[in-house]
């Protein structure tokens, strides 16, 4: 199953990725913030989590820390969406929990090839 959870506070980005991915056969779960992402994980989401770094409330990195603390990493891979040229220092020490990074704005081909790689790793 091509399951993707998109975590982004920007409705434009969130709905865009939802539209594009659904049209290409993915099943998409939308989470407009880190707390809802954690909620979906507790309810048993399995798949790729595509997470924005800069979000109000819980940032992407803080959300990853919560995921680790709640022991919810087992059935997911995390990819980070970033508007910055480099991922920055805020996530130092958390790199090993990130499968890949994608700078905004991205091409759909790049997005889907990253997601497909992650999905393949998740369920070989």
């Amino acid at each position: 199953m091509k399951n993707v959870m998109v975590v982004d506070d920007d409705p434009g980005v969130l709905n865009t990725i939802d539209l594009v991915l659904r049209r290409h056969g993915y099943t998409v779960v939308k989470a407009p913030n880190g707390h809802l992402c954690l909620e979906h994980l507790r309810q048993g989401f399995r798949g790729v989590v595509l997470m924005d770094i800069m979000m109000p409330g819980l940032t992407g990195w803080e959300t990853i820390r919560e995921i680790i603390a709640a022991n919810l990493l087992d059935n997911i891979l995390v990819c980070m969406l970033t508007a910055k040229a480099s991922p920055g220092t805020e996530g130092e020490g958390l790199e090993e929990f990130v499968f890949d990074y994608l700078p905004k704005p991205f091409d759909n081909v790049e997005l889907m090839s990253m997601l497909d790689n992650a999905i393949e790793c998740l369920e070989p």
């Binding site: 920007d10 865009t16 508007a83 700078p103 905004k104 704005p105």
Partner: peptide
């Protein structure tokens, strides 16, 4: 930096 986020729908949806 801030312009990148609103540009995402354009770059992604127009090819669709």
């Amino acid at each position: 930096h801030d312009l990148k986020t609103p540009l995402t729908p354009l770059v992604s949806l127009l090819p669709e």
